[in-house]
Design a protein around this nucleic acid. Structure first.
Lengths: 221, 221
DNA sequence: ACCTGAACACCGTTCAAGT
DNA sequence: ACCTGAACACCGTTCAAGT
């Protein structure tokens, strides 16, 4: 059995699988090395440190964000295209929200910068000042991330069904006089969710806010 | 010098100060113990484990969220009161966003549950289904958290001014042909920000989205 | 009740050395 | 160029023991 040579690619893929199955905290240099049948120090040849490794994971996930905006469209439509592209890139990897949380300097992520620049451009056209546009842009990215994080998983795995059941029981066992609404919500967890509907609602919520703010201000100050 | 007895209160306060000055990751059982002139194991008398300690920090910060809603007001107004109360509780502690990220089970936080229940109640009145209301509620909490996290600090500390300068230089040194908007934003970092304006804009952005979604749906399905 | 001491099983990272 | 071995300075946590 000839040892395969270790590459950045294989490391990133293994790490991503680990993060999706056991959480971002489970991604440890030593753990990863043992999964790859290699010494921990071997990883330091391919990545400067753990921070760079995590950034590579995030970059790998976001690399699919190709916001090929159609320039003729109105800004509302162009913004939606970008946001939906980000959602599409993220929603298949449950670990993404925590992953982005672990990356300190998101400006190191090229795909993140590309998406931000495209967003800023659209928002400038919508009449926002540079500062407002930047705030709105972070708001949108964070909103999408939160959407993915809060998404009810329903892939059919038994482990996941068990989690949902426990969650429901915990909600329903709260003091009924103080938390009637939370208990009511708990009840809805027994029916299967509409995932596409969930994301559609969330994206609309995000974009509607931006549109309302743009409409309020007649033009740039 | 008689040793003061260790209390949950003093531990939480010391930990919060540490988190605000050096980041949440600097809050370590051992580090905290040495700051309190005590053995690491002493903390385990007062807190079951680190998770519970972090939850106590979050609870301490959020405990100020007393959403005494005026029941006569329209739901839009009542929602705004809640959101602004959360902003007020959070904005003085820069560590809060990372802190909430470190708390896995937010359902353990009583103040969080209170705020969520109040929000769900208002949103039910606005015509959202239980599921939609829950999604909107997480959206709002996350939005406020992101707002605090992205808030440009301007307290006058020299360390902080230096950080901002570096941030601006980094933005302005990006490739000019690909990132003109980000460079333009970088330029705005040399002028002092309007913090209240920042939060006002952010809260409006959040609430407008919710209002638009409520208006779109004439009633519960 | 409240805290200490010693120990265990983990971390990330550096530095020199091997091939 | 690519990886190993040994070592360092950290973690959170358990368990028995002290007062």
């Amino acid at each position: 059995m000839a040892q395969e040579k270790l590459t950045r690619e294989t490391v990133v893929e293994q790490a991503l699988a680990l993060a999706d199955h056991e959480g971002v905290d489970a991604v440890t240099i030593r753990r990863l090395a043992s999964l790859l049948a290699v010494t921990p120090m071997a990883l330091y040849w391919h990545f400067k440190n753990k921070e760079e490794l995590m950034a590579a994971l995030a970059e790998h996930v976001l690399s699919g964000v190709t916001a090929d905006v159609s320039p003729g469209d109105p800004w509302q439509r162009r913004l939606r295209v970008i946001v939906e592209a980000v959602v599409r890139a993220m929603r298949d990897n449950p670990c993404v929200p925590d992953l982005l949380g672990a990356v300190r300097d998101k400006q190191e992520l090229e795909s993140f910068n590309r998406a931000t620049e495209a967003t800023l451009d659209v928002l400038a056209e919508a009449g926002f000042t540079p500062r407002e546009a930047f705030a709105v842009s972070s708001y949108l990215l964070n909103g999408v991330t939160a959407l993915v994080k809060g998404c009810p998983l329903w892939t059919g795995e038994p482990r996941e069904a068990e989690e949902r059941r426990l969650r429901r029981l915990k909600l329903e066992s709260m003091p009924g006089d103080r938390y009637p609404r939370m208990i009511q919500y708990g009840g809805t967890l027994s029916e299967p969710p509409d995932i596409d509907g969930y994301y559609g609602f969330g994206v609309d919520l995000l974009l509607r806010g931006v549109e309302a703010m743009a409409a309020r201000r007649p033009g740039p100050a």
